[in-house]
């Protein structure tokens, strides 16, 4: 190693992972042939990915479905062994799964649960207390804080199966953070939650990061999570590192357009709109145009002059679109 500063909580160095999966030939005959002569196909899920995350950093990890995000997280959590390359997390090689490492790590997968289904979440908390070897005082202090921040008080004594998804997700977070991990890997923490609950979870993650100085790596399909929480993002595409840097710089680099949105008071010639910019949509007396930044003023003026415009908006490109363009290979 030696390449990274010593304060790094997490480093990945040319991390690579190949999956081997059997090729299923079509039809019954193919299936029978597969019993005796199985052929495999190697897929590279993660391809020489390197990055480093400092203590206290909160980094967004972006990529389309199947880009290799979860595979990377699993390697960093020690669930998968890489095909080549290496990583260090809190000074440990993750896939050795040493207890000293695991006591300071937490991996939260939005769709998975570690809570005991039939019992109140409190019982799972007690179990985790002993699994992580917390003293009664540590457990109390940590639990009180989490219950308060996650607004869990009333739900602690209700069997988990009776909780709503949002309540369960918050209980899940509490279970995962009781031992105050210094490294937190969050995979889709807001998936399936309603808007208010998403906001609560985001506020909590930000607060936890500030209070404990834990390094957090977060994947999300929900761009609001990333925009509100992360100043730095790492983008991967088909297993390769595409971008690693400030979110602002990413936006500046890719958002070279603005969107003009117009509502019309009367009939207009939609074909003429194309002269002003790229037409994104035209329907029900409304139109949206994508216009290069340099031409925004001119296009807006022409629109007001030549069309029966009732209302006009100038908007920044949605960050979702930027990332989608990135993923699309733009």
């Amino acid at each position: 190693m030696g390449k990274w500063p010593m304060t790094a909580a997490l480093t990945a160095d040319a991390l690579t992972k190949d999956y081997r999966s059997p090729i299923k030939e079509p039809g019954l005959l193919g299936g029978i042939r597969g019993l005796f002569d199985r052929r495999y196909k190697d897929t590279r899920a993660v391809d020489a990915v390197s990055f480093s995350i400092e203590e206290g950093e909160l980094v967004g990890f972006l990529g389309a479905n199947g880009a290799g995000k979860t595979t990377t997280l699993k390697m960093l959590a020690g669930l998968l062994t890489p095909t080549s390359g290496t990583a260090r997390a809190l000074g440990h090689v993750p896939w050795r799964r040493e207890a000293a490492f695991q006591r300071r790590l937490s991996l939260v997968m939005g769709q998975r649960t570690q809570l005991w289904w039939e019992l109140p979440a409190y019982e799972t908390f007690r179990l985790n207390k002993d699994i992580y070897g917390l003293s009664e005082a540590q457990f109390r202090a940590s639990l009180d804080e989490l219950v308060d921040m996650l607004d869990l008080g009333a739900h602690l004594s209700i069997p988990v199966k009776k909780l709503s998804l949002g309540e369960r997700m918050r209980a899940e977070l509490a279970a995962a953070l009781l031992h105050r991990p210094s490294l937190l890997l969050l995979d889709e923490p807001t998936i399936g939650l309603d808007v208010i609950m998403q906001k609560k979870v985001r506020e909590f993650v930000r607060g936890y990061n500030k209070r404990t100085g834990a390094a957090i790596l977060l994947t999300s399909h929900n761009m609001t999570d990333v925009v509100e929480l992360c100043r730095r993002v790492i983008v991967i595409e088909r297993g390769r590192l595409l971008y690693d840097g400030a979110l602002d710089a990413l936006v500046a680099r890719y958002a070279d357009h603005k969107i003009l949105r117009a509502r019309f008071s009367g009939p207009f010639d939609a074909k003429k709109l194309a002269a002003l910019g790229t037409v994104v949509s035209v329907e029900d007396g409304r139109a949206a145009l994508q216009v290069p930044r340099a031409r925004v003023a001119a296009s807006a003026a022409a629109l007001l002059r030549d069309f029966p415009v009732a209302d006009l908006d100038v908007e920044e490109v949605d960050i979702d679109d930027i990332v989608r363009r990135l993923f699309g290979g733009a």
Partner: peptide, 12 residues
């Protein structure tokens, strides 16, 4: 189901 992962990341 992959749930076994949740045990493998804990000191257990």
């Amino acid at each position: 189901s992959g749930r076994v992962s949740s045990y493998l990341v804990r000191p257990l």
